[in-house]
Nucleic acid binder design. Sequence first.
DNA 1: TTTAGGG
DNA 2: CCCTAAA
Length: 647
Amino acid sequence: MVLQKRLDYGFNGYQVPATPRATRSARRRGSFRKKVEDNQMFAFDLLATVAGKLLLEGEKSPDSVNTSNGKEQCVIAEDHVKNEGHAEDKPLKIEPCDQGNSEKLVIGNGKNETESFASKVEVGSSGFREFNDRKLENETKRQIKVEPIKTGRAILNTGAGMFGSEDQVVWDGKPSVLVSSNSSAEVPACRDNIPCGSFPLCRGDVKVVSRDDDDNSSGCTQPSTSTKSFRPLPRIGDRRIRKLLASRYWKVTPKLKEDGFSNVDGEVKPIYRNKRNCYKRQRSQRNYPFKKRKLLYCSSVSNSEGGNGNERISDSPQMGINGDASGSGLKLHGGIGTSASVAGQHTSFQSRDSHVKLRIKSFRVPELFIEIPETATVGSLKRTVMEAVTAILGGGLRVGVLLRGKKVRDDSKTLQQTGISQDDQMDALGFTLEPNPSQAPQALCPGDNPFLLPYDTPQPLIRYPPTPMVAHQGTSDASPDPPVTNLCNFVESDHDSAPSPDTDMSIDKSVTDSKALVSVPAMSVEALAVVPVHRKSKRSEIVQRRIRRPFSVSEVEALVQAVEKLGTGRWRDVKLRAFDNAKHRTYVDLKDKWKTLVHTARISPQQRRGEPVPQELLDRVLTAHAYWSQQQAKQQLKHQSETCLLL
DNA sequence: TTTAGGG
DNA sequence: CCCTAAA
């Protein structure tokens, strides 16, 4: 089968192009965000996409990823990885295997079955059965190479509880992916399609929390457009995915401090001085358009090679509304499935030539918690689920090996040395899918303040200024400013406000209070858009919309009161006066709300929707509106007459 | 950056 | 809510 699209990923980091700073205001308004995001894309999304396709075949709704021609194939591989002799470095590919069992996925290096364990693992995809049937029949060779993560540190672990259900996760991390083709600096398929694709977002239903904080972000920009020097490392981006009740943050951990990029002849090339930390796989890197998101910058974490199970993502207590200890933060592994059953399901035996053959029947996708309005369509439900799954898969995975429940961290050891090749050990062997450290956000440890770390990190590429979110993490400066003494001053905490002003990073309280929040990984959504298919969708779709936050009655009251006093043409003042502490309410929002209030007041009560606004308030709205409109008219007349007089 | 409006 | 032209 011919691979039409070949996407090579380097998961250890992507380059973050230098981006203009967005003003707070601009960010809040999203105008800036759009500009940036339209041109940027995480390669990571591609992976998610691919994964998504794999999982959700058969879903051909216009909104879903759709591969027009059945022969389209994606290869996510790390072909250019320098093989250091570690099995891990070998590219792995996952492909549908229709031999006998059409629902099989084969993860291997593409070589024949006699491959060594490291290079080949068969995975029975029983878990994906529902999704693959159709596709497998037609496409028996869809291949996906999953590059083994080598430099990454294991952030998460598959400790106990990783299978915990109800993992609520706040996933913050931008997968840093470098997309490049091994044969050329550019990946046509990817580059051309990413920016163009789009995925309809379910407004209100899909909540993606992403911040576009460009400060300090650095990276490579298009060669032709940037002459800036690049900072050391391609950094990881971050995506904040908020799951209901969730509260786990992943931090991205860039660890390549010594690395740097040199901009030579317009070509951006990574320079890795520190071999250990360097990600050798990245070669000719082209700046890849990616979406910029705000990163929660956490200094690199140490837990890289982490230990076992304990590295689970912190269930940040503070946030843990769910209290669920599954802590799985994305235990993707666990989460995404972990080895779970591997032990029991895999069978192995020694091949004649001393090769170990393993069979993993399936990786289980852990329970996902999704909340979606009952009015949502089945299609959107499917999409939501897929996105959630895709997000996890797309985050970049690495395989972990467990032997008798213990994680085998030393990749250099041979199977023989570790005892994996021994028959009697086979039952004790397990595999886990873990988030790729370099891409997946790091988990925050309880008490961990991501915002504090950045500054400690040497030459961080991206810094994230402290945000209100911190407050939710139980950290100090969280306390909101004391409410202003205005009559009607809205403090964010007042209602469902989110801690983060322009980022909607609402966490605990917000999430809890909200009625139906569907948290879906932003990336997954966009990932779909990346699919090289049709570019029907508009780019604008790619931009994440702010979360909808209906005004509460008390807010309306405050607004009305302010407008009564200030008029309808001074939204900034209104904002300052009555919503100064409600960071998520911009003056534009207030203006818009007023507009809708006026409209609401004019229509019959039967036609009104949402939380009913007391008639009394609506009456005041009309009164104030009439009054100020009149004033405005007078002003205009006055102005006009003055002008005439002058002339 | 704000306003003012259309989408 | 978003997006923008204007101011």
